[in-house]
């Protein structure tokens, strides 16, 4: 190890730290503001650390808005979407991967073609359809459009294709029905793919604003991103502390989950790049 190398390392590390600081600034600032009093926020001097740690903003955020409700909505919507996505995708993926039947390549073709279609493209007709069914402004409106995940089918199919055929034949001989094979054999073995897909799906829908903006107007149904905009617009930007506290609360679940399971999280989101 010579000195030139050491200097090189020092420069690289310094730059990486600087970049990381820049990237993290919004997070620091959000935390910082969420703990500052109104007076401190509007004072002309700036400091990263609040004078004193005070939880008033958080109390205000929960008291003055239905923040808790937003979180519950997010949970219901993400959970509902994921449940139905797997319910539809897994048996189909199993059939595509391990069974031979007429129309199989046609259905797989549909799956591949479906990967090309971003959700935004289907928004108008789905909105019309939900309006026709009088489902707008319900949880159903937030969940239903996403139940057919071609991406889920694709991921599961790839995973199940890689499993040995003999395993499924053994299961047939052991008396498992085809449905039982899908749920009792294929799903447990496809857990890595299922985890990646679950992370991808939950993050995508927890963070989505586009569809909630369209499908609901009732704040009581708003998932977190839609909710925080209601909050911001009501307060017209003056009540910064509680707004930042609300932002912290909304960002926290995904960030904490990410920090706890970094590898899986990164895998799940990276695999999402395959989707159109």
């Amino acid at each position: 190890m010579n000195s030139r190398n050491l200097i090189g390392r020092a420069i690289v590390l310094a730059l990486l730290f600087l970049g990381a600081m820049l990237v993290l600034t919004p997070f620091f600032w959000m935390l910082s503001l969420s703990f500052k009093s109104q007076a401190e926020i509007f004072s002309p001097t700036i400091s990263l650390f609040p004078d004193q740690l005070q939880w008033d903003n958080y109390r205000a955020a929960f008291e003055r808005t239905t923040l808790l409700r937003f979180l519950v909505n997010g949970l219901v919507v993400c959970g509902g979407i994921l449940f139905f996505q797997i319910l539809f995708a897994l048996p189909c993926a199993y059939a595509l991967a391990q069974r031979r039947f007429r129309g199989r390549s046609l259905i797989f073709g549909l799956v591949l073609a479906g990967l090309l279609v971003p959700f935004h493209v289907t928004a108008i007709p789905i909105f019309l359809g939900l309006a026709e069914l009088r489902l707008l402004n319900t949880y159903g409106a937030l969940i239903l459009p996403f139940v057919a995940s071609v991406f889920g089918i694709f991921l599961f199919r790839q995973a199940i294709s890689a499993m040995p055929v003999e395993l499924f034949e053994a299961a047939r001989i052991d008396g498992l029905s085809e449905g039982a094979i899908a749920w009792r054999i294929a799903l447990p073995l496809a857990m890595p793919a299922a985890t990646a897909f679950a992370i991808f799906s939950v993050v995508a829908h927890w963070n989505d604003l586009f569809w909630p903006l369209i499908a609901i107007s009732d704040p009581a149904l708003a998932p977190p991103p839609r909710g925080i905009l209601y909050f911001r617009d009501e307060e017209s930007g003056t009540d910064v502390g509680p707004l930042m506290a609300a932002a912290v609360v909304i960002v926290a679940p995904m960030v904490v989950a990410f920090l706890l399971a970094q590898r899986r999280f990164i895998q799940g989101l990276a695999v999402g790049g395959l989707k159109g």
Binding site: P26, F27, M30, V203, W206, N207, L209, P224, P225, R226, I228, L229, R232, L243, M244, A246, A247, I250, V251, M254, V255, A257, F258, F265, L269
Partner: peptide
């Protein structure tokens, strides 16, 4: 990973 809308705020 962070919710973009909240971070946009």
């Amino acid at each position: 990973a962070a919710t973009l809308v909240a971070m946009a705020v």
